[in-house]
């Protein structure tokens, strides 16, 4: 659906196993995935900093791990709750105050589909 999805599969970022070789273009690709704009100064800085940070976290590969560790995050979630209708909710007036662009009870967004859209 989005042209970006096809970009992902063939991008060199995914055939290279190590971020330590991360180039400026790979960083700007990550930025696009994360929907962030980087200034050229930020791109240059991150090209220096990010590989060092990733090198730092790569030391995890040296850890001796137990065999039976789960891979889902261990948050002690509460037991299931009943479906109880809550009367606590935001009013349309409150939502209108927060939405940057509002019309007739709805949040206005730029076009998602069609010629106007660009994913």
């Amino acid at each position: 659906m989005f042209s970006g999805a096809i970009e992902i599969e063939s991008h060199p970022c995914y055939t290279q196993p190590r971020m330590s070789e991360l180039t400026s273009s790979e960083i700007s690709h990550l930025a696009r995935l994360a929907r962030i704009t980087l200034s050229s100064e930020e791109e240059a800085k991150f090209a220096q900093e990010l590989p060092r940070i990733v090198e730092f976290v790569e030391q995890l590969q040296k850890v001796k791990l137990d065999d039976d560790l789960a891979t889902s995050v261990p948050t002690p979630l509460s037991a299931m709750r009943e479906d109880v209708v809550s009367s606590d909710h935001l009013t349309l007036e409150q939502l209108e105050a927060l939405a940057p662009d509002w019309q007739g009870g709805q949040v206005v967004v730029p076009a998602v589909f069609g010629e106007e859209a660009d994913a």
Binding site: D101, P110, E116
Partner: peptide
């Protein structure tokens, strides 16, 4: 889109960016 601050653009992607 939702939290008050917005740099508006005509295209959705540009608004995000």
């Amino acid at each position: 889109i939702r939290y008050q601050k917005s740099v508006q653009a005509s295209k959705l992607l540009d608004q995000y960016l």
